[in-house]
Design a protein around this nucleic acid. Structure first.
Length: 431
RNA sequence: CGGGGAGUAGCGCAGCCUGGUAGCGCACCUGGUUUGGGACCAGGGGGUCGAAGGUUCGAAUCCUUUCUCCCCGACCA
């Protein structure tokens, strides 16, 4: 992508409505524009990141055998009446009446719909286990939306639902998801901390929430330091679940089960939540299968959510400095930025294009900053949008056969010979 | 939903107390000079002052109503 052809409206000052750093940076870097309280348009740069996160989530789900489908945003109220949640959900649920006076709603979650889909097609224990998911926009009419996309009313969520014959099998599905979640967040460059959680209105008996570490996080976490150094290739859910982790109001110094030297305290942001809730919905919505003996039994279910749009904000909370965003490479909108400081200079233009064409051909996400504007603006815009690897081409260095290479995350600036730029960048991309 | 704050140009703000028909910085447009950190000079465009009603010869400014947005709290992916 050439910057001059792109739509990337950066701002020097954030609008006064933005308070926390990720919200400010998302607005300043032209990722989102607020439409109304808790509802945002995703501008091209923001959408790219959202899609990258979505892709990682999808890949990790598919790897463990979850099957993607897509359910609607607008649902009819009748299934919710059956499950008993039409009244329970209260004002958080956005209710809509269609032209014939039917009561509809913008789905805040999808247990009812998925259970209905399941029950109408699955009748035998032989079809189990099943794990279905979708990535869809949800709406919860929060009393007080805030923190930009981290607590919007409209948000993109990956939610899946597992169906098993009994509790023991359901726990296996649960653990599989648990593991997939840890891997998903690690792939995004984050440090996930899993905590045993309250089940809340979704109900059930077993639940974990996943927080990621960020200095500016909302909750304070107390946890075993082993949770900080996980090897994604070698995750044992049961072992992880046995490690100590608690949010501040559950933590008690006096009966903390682990020694003080192993206890870490950090701020976190919740980005995922998983539940096992047994037969709560399957009984109400008649999701029964026949077991080996021909008995109709309700399936055991779990549900698993990842806040995809929230992750965009959360990652920024975890990775930024006073100049802007520092994207982890895996989710960055572009991996490489080629910054031509002097687009009017023939040599600079030629060199920039040469690199640009190379990366385009090699399918590396690359942006060429070919704008005619001051150097300061160019460099600060690129710092703001936080592309991990920046190749800076200017007349001064080029005369000496040099180019400046920057790693935004590691704060590394380095002069490199022009001929080595491509190899050097590729080497960095592999890390 | 309780408490607090704010709506004036795309963004950040001043003006309001003490009414006289709107201003600054950035951004934008034109021309020129610049070129390794948001550059400079000159010229220029853009606002029914959130909305409605009222007071007044006259309202951004005073009064009333209303809408929106933000912050703190209780609640959540």
């Amino acid at each position: 992508m050439k910057y001059s052809n792109f739509f990337l409206p950066t701002l020097k000052d954030a609008p006064s409505e933005a308070e926390i750093v990720s919200h400010k940076l998302m607005i300043r870097s032209g990722m989102i524009k607020q439409s109304s309280a808790g509802i945002y348009s995703w501008l091209p740069l923001g959408l790219m990141v959202l899609k990258n996160i979505e892709k990682i989530v999808r890949e990790e789900q598919n790897k463990v055998g979850a099957i993607e489908l897509l359910m609607p945003t607008i649902q009819s109220s009748d299934l919710w009446v059956k499950s008993g949640r039409y009244d329970d959900y209260g004002k958080e649920m956005l209710r809509i009446t269609d032209r014939s006076g039917r009561e509809m709603l913008y789905g805040p979650t999808n247990e009812e719909l998925i259970t209905d889909i399941f029950q109408s097609h699955v009748n035998s224990h032989k079809d189990l286990p099943k794990n279905l998911y979708h990535i869809q926009w949800k709406f919860r009419d929060e009393v007080r939306p805030r923190f930009g996309v981290m607590r919007g009313r409209e948000f993109l969520m990956k939610d899946n639902y597992s169906f098993d014959i009994n509790e023991e099998e359901a726990k296996k599905s649960y653990d599989k998801m648990f593991k997939a979640y840890i891997k998903t967040f690690i792939r995004m460059g984050l440090t996930p901390i899993s905590l045993r959680a309250e089940t809340g209105p979704i109900g059930g008996s077993l639940s974990h929430e996943f927080q990621i570490l960020a200095k500016t996080g909302e909750s304070t976490l107390f946890y075993d330091k082993k949770l900080e150094t996980l090897n994604p290739e070698n995750i044992d859910p049961n072992e992880l679940q046995s490690y100590y982790a608690a949010v501040d109001d559950q933590h008690n110094e006096n009966n903390c089960p682990i020694p003080k030297e192993n206890l870490k305290i950090s701020k976190g942001i919740e980005v995922g939540h998983i539940f096992y809730f047994g037969t709560k919905y399957s009984e109400k919505l008649k999701a029964y299968v026949q077991d080996k003996n021909g008995n109709n039994i309700p399936v055991h279910m779990g549900s698993y959510g990842i806040g995809v749009s929230r992750l965009v904000g959360a990652i920024i909370e975890a990775y930024h400095d006073d100049k802007g965003i520092k994207w982890p490479t895996s989710v960055a909108p572009f991996k490489v930025a080629i910054i031509n400081l002097m687009p009017d200079d023939q040599d600079c233009a030629t060199k920039s294009l040469e690199y640009y064409n190379y990366f385009m051909k090699n399918k590396t996400d690359v942006i060429l900053d070919d704008r005619v504007c001051s150097i300061g603006k160019k460099l600060s815009d690129n710092e703001l949008i936080g592309i991990p690897f920046q190749i800076i081409i200017g007349k001064r260095d080029l005369k000496e056969g040099l180019i400046e290479f920057r790693n935004r995350q590691k704060n590394i600036n380095k002069k490199i010979k022009v001929d080595e730029v491509i190899n050097f960048t590729n080497k960095n991309l592999e890390l």
